[in-house]
């Protein structure tokens, strides 16, 4: 069983060493620019000159390509085909097949749209590959995010694999008792309750004890929290964050004035 769920890959790299908030700003910055920029080729250029170099710099190119093939390209490909075929944009008709008559405009539109989705998902993926969830939450907590949020995020990451393992056990157990998970729709729908019931009730009864356990360790203490690990935040980090904010504002302005 996986003990926790996350994309994170431990490496020694310039990207890994960045402050988590800088990386988050970077990821969001790339997304904003790709969606807000008035220029057609911005998202494509971002992939070449931001996403790929970042994955190289962070030494996660292989993992990134892997995620690209498994998660990003199928979605983007589906989007591209659907939109190229079905977006009813007026323009130069490329071909006609039955009721389909894609135009040059709809293909261009679909291409830009799909690329933007690729940029968005890629930049989040690289952020997740290079940022340990614990570091991110520690840093955000230090900056004023209530400690309860860190608790929720991290404990969810640890509960999900347990829950999935439990779900698999229950599915296997119910199947061996003849529960139907394969045949007709109504039989499968009827199978839902015996599968969901034990899973849900089992985890809900534990809630109270777990609440007591964390209360006993000062979870609701009104004192100012401290943290075990210190997360470095250098001048370089601050520079990166401020320049990204400037870039986002400039892009927004150009969007408003140029379109």
């Amino acid at each position: 069983m996986q003990e926790r769920l996350s994309f994170y890959k431990k490496r020694e790299s310039a990207v890994h060493r960045l402050n988590p908030l800088s990386k988050l700003t970077l990821a969001l910055g790339i997304v904003f620019v790709s969606f807000l920029s008035p220029y057609y080729w911005t998202p494509h250029l971002l992939i070449l000159f931001a996403v790929i170099p970042l994955s190289l710099l962070g030494k996660v190119l292989r993992e990134y390509i892997n995620a690209m093939l498994r998660l990003i390209l199928p979605t983007a490909g589906f989007l591209f085909i659907m939109q190229a075929l079905f977006q009813p944009l007026e323009g130069v008709e490329l071909f006609r097949f039955g009721f389909l008559h894609p135009t040059q405009e709809s293909v261009l539109f679909a291409f830009a749209n799909a690329t933007r989705i690729v940029v968005m998902v890629s930049s989040f993926t690289i952020f997740l590959l290079t940022t340990h969830p614990n570091e991110l939450m520690t840093d955000l907590t230090r900056r004023g995010l209530p400690g309860q949020f860190a608790y929720v995020i991290i404990s969810t990451l640890q509960i999900i694999p347990q829950m999935q393992a439990k779900a698999q056990t229950i599915i296997a157990a119910q199947r061996s008792r003849g529960l139907d998970t394969e045949s007709t729709f109504f039989k499968r729908a009827g199978s839902l309750i015996p599968l969901v019931g034990p899973l849900v009730f089992g985890s809900l009864v534990e809630v109270e004890e777990r609440a007591i356990a964390i209360e006993a360790r000062g979870f609701t203490s009104t004192r100012v929290k401290t943290s075990l690990n210190s997360i470095p935040d250098t001048n370089k980090d601050k520079l990166i964050r401020w320049s990204l904010i400037v870039i986002i504002i400039v892009t927004l302005a150009s969007r408003i004035w140029l379109s």
Partner: peptide, 9 residues
């Protein structure tokens, strides 16, 4: 098991 906070790795 229930006394593990879940907040830490």
């Amino acid at each position: 098991f229930n006394q593990i906070s879940g907040a830490k790795f």
